[in-house]
Amino acid sequence: MKRIISVVSILLFAVVAAYSSGYNVGDKATEFKLKNIDGKLISFSNFYDAKGFVVVFTCNGCPYAQAYQDRLIEIDKKYKLKGYPVIAINPNDPALAPDDSYDKMVSVAKKEGFTFPYLTDEKQEVYRQYGATRTPHVYVLQKKGSDFVVQYIGAIDDNHQDATKVTSPFLANALDALIAGSMPEPATTKAIGCGIKDKRKK
């Protein structure tokens, strides 16, 4: 009995640890199934020929997220042809961020001409599993056998204010590296973003 309790507590601890810390580079990402703006459920298996994914936690209302909408469309157009499509996920609780409701996701995606799925993390479980803290927050996954391995975490580039003044396109560099068969350098970067709106955080 004691042994069962200790095994259970170790398991519980592992689950809690996995949830609280999120992914590091090298970790395997778990498959998710979330509702897209067309009402359909999307998961990795919808992209049978993908070599990986650009999973980006983003939203409607955050000015930093807005500043990167066009750049994400460009990334998606270019890199889905090379096997790395963008999957955008809105992690915010619309009760705390009214601009981030499902209906507004639908209208923003239409208005901005999103070329990628824009999913709602209704239960706010996926963003916690990944360890995302802000919008936008990017995770690049690479398919290895049946696994999806996290190879890059962080920012899209180094100038949110002006796309023409970017000196390091971190995300594109990471994708180019993976496509060329090497590892992203740097594999993690940071940027200012809007904190994810979650009642449990208060």
Binding site: T133, H137, A155, D158, H160, T167, I192
Partner: peptide
């Protein structure tokens, strides 16, 4: 704008939110 350069200098544990 080059936030990646200075966020860690403010605080290593800060991810930028």
């Amino acid at each position: 704008p080059n936030q990646n350069r200075w966020i860690d200098k403010v605080d290593k544990s800060w991810s930028g939110e």
